[in-house]
Design a binder for these strands. Structure first.
Lengths: 336, 336
DNA sequence: TTGAAAGCGCTAACAC
DNA sequence: GTGTTAGCGCTTTCAA
């Protein structure tokens, strides 16, 4: 591992500049010289020391991706897409987990660890609008998610309100009138839960249906167990409903399980719609109708936007980029 | 971001060595000097340039984790654990996806991109025993999985044969005698599928039950859809069985869905056991009995073993470290 | 077309 | 207890 430019230069009887030229495809090199150098590189098995190159160039060729937890399917699938896009652009990805903890998220933004990368794609879950100023950092940053809006950084996100409204309207179109919700967050005004609930209410209102608190299930987290617990509580309350809107797929899958355990048939007695377009939602029993909020586009756009900033688009003001959504219709809530 | 040691030194009217001493907690510094330096650091908002430090020290403080695809729940959960362990040790993790492609796996081992890290935790899925020599690399490497054994690198893995045998015995103990398999790999002798099938056969043999090819389902990949397809084929063949052993949880969940669609009750008509101990296996309907092959231990041990090698345990010969397994008994295959 | 040499920001001998 | 200085391996003016 100790083969350097000098070693190659010595073996090829040229200067290190010439070797460097060969490596960096500098055009004006005499073919004979090039061959001599390439032979020496091959013989010694030389590979450039990226750390040294980075120190010179000020770039690392790596970006950081910070998200709550890879154990959550939504973020695992998002990370898979981001890494894939980054690789296509010749960049590696350093993954940080924040555990959805506000303090850890704020710490991360100040961490010297980020110095190992050229920029950050950041999906916070603990921070809120009051922390927007913390996003005013000195390195390229792309924000994901819906915890903070109109911050000082580029923001790639989904049309939560419209997509949730479309999901609700999908249920209304089948004649469902009592649509329960699983996964609402008490008192929240921003964030995925609040925005999706807002879309749900807008759809009800447009259809002339009143909002009924008794069929809204609250949870703190969005694991499958929370969806199951929330549904148990809704059933215990005794409120009637003929459909369920899970504010994400994981919740919807947990809720659907409890519905079936209770003897209700899905979709005959109760139709279920989720949100996220997870792969696994296609394989539940029944398969889950859901909204794809445009994850693939979000990953692709987050990477390309970050790389543009890194390449020097500093003067451009921060933008908000919104993905298009689509309904993935499956068995848990079929049309008609 | 252009604040360097020199800037701090100038402001504090000391030499850069003194600043460096303060930053690195060198003990013998006069308190007054330390305060002066710390004040200057705070005023300028100095943070060390890790790239420069790395070039000097030859360390990067990062490790690489290469796996097939974060979209596969097993690997996503593994990555989550590895990153968590690494963070506890003050190391960041760069994640590479190889898509289970042998060529990409071999390329990765030679990639200069790895120069950004101090070592690699590598979980191949395309390479085989014939590629063992490619693991003889010049950087610290820890191998995961069961594609290659007795290679030149430390290997952290699970007791596949014993764990699969235990899973099969769990079914036998309930009086099941016709145990179908989902996910076998045609003609494979090494690899997870082959080893687990071997454990299955050992259990049957010990119980005096013959091996019946007609109830062995083959797949190439281990997605949920493959488990479903494999089960459809088994049912179409018309072979009788009262239990199913899915060679991983994802396969088992797909197979279970098809069983239920076909009108069979789980576990009454057919009991199902998976393998991996995925979180989501606890939330299927019915919840899936599975084998936890010791994932948490594997992640922890992979990280600590790699860090030991990085710290210089070069002379120690390559070891194989085996995790303990446990049966997670749930509804799909309850005792008695 | 190629060589010499400066320096990216830091650490660690070695001096004082 | 603190300062000077030589590199880590590379890229890149500037000369030749």
């Amino acid at each position: 591992m100790a083969v350097t430019l000098h070693d190659v230069a010595r073996l090829a009887s040229v200067s290190i500049k010439t070797v460097s030229n060969v490596i960096n495809d500098y055009p004006h090199i005499r073919p004979a010289t090039r061959e001599k150098v390439e032979a020496a590189i091959a013989e010694l098995g030389y590979t450039p020391n990226l750390t040294a190159r980075n120190l010179r160039s000020g770039r690392t060729g790596a970006i950081a991706l910070a998200l709550p937890d890879l154990g959550l399917p939504y973020f695992a699938e998002l990370a898979a897409l981001v890494i894939q896009e980054a690789e296509a652009a010749g960049v590696v990805v350093l993954v940080e987990q924040t555990g959805a903890d506000r303090t850890r998220e704020l710490d991360l933004l100040r961490s010297p660890r980020l110095k190992l990368t050229d920029g950050l794609i950041f999906s916070p879950l603990g921070m809120g609008q009051q922390d927007a100023a913390a996003l005013d950092v000195s390195f390229p940053l792309v924000l994901l998610g819906e915890r903070i809006f109109d911050g000082p950084a580029d923001h790639v996100t989904m049309r939560n309100v419209e997509a949730a409204r479309a999901a609700t309207e999908h249920l209304l179109a089948q004649g469902r009138r009592r649509i329960a919700v699983v996964g609402a967050h008490e008192g929240e005004v921003l964030g995925s839960a609040a925005l999706r609930l807002q879309g749900y209410r807008a759809a009800l209102e447009a259809a002339g249906i009143g909002y009924d608190e008794t069929i809204i299930g609250y949870t703190t987290l969005w694991h499958r167990a929370n969806g199951a617990d929330s549904m148990r509580e809704l059933l215990a309350r005794g409120g009637e409903f003929d459909a369920v809107f899970g504010l994400n797929d994981t919740l919807a899958l947990g809720a659907m399980r409890v519905l079936q355990e209770s003897g209700r048939r899905v979709p005959d007695d109760v139709a279920v719609v989720g949100f996220d377009g997870l792969d696994e939602a296609a394989y539940s029993i029944p398969s889950l109708t859901t909204v794809d909020p445009g994850r693939a586009w979000i990953a692709k756009t987050a990477v390309s936007t970050l790389l543009e900033r890194i390449a020097g688009a500093v003067e451009v003001p921060a933008r908000t980029l919104l993905a298009d959504y689509s309904i993935l219709e499956r068995e848990s809530a079929p049309s008609a």
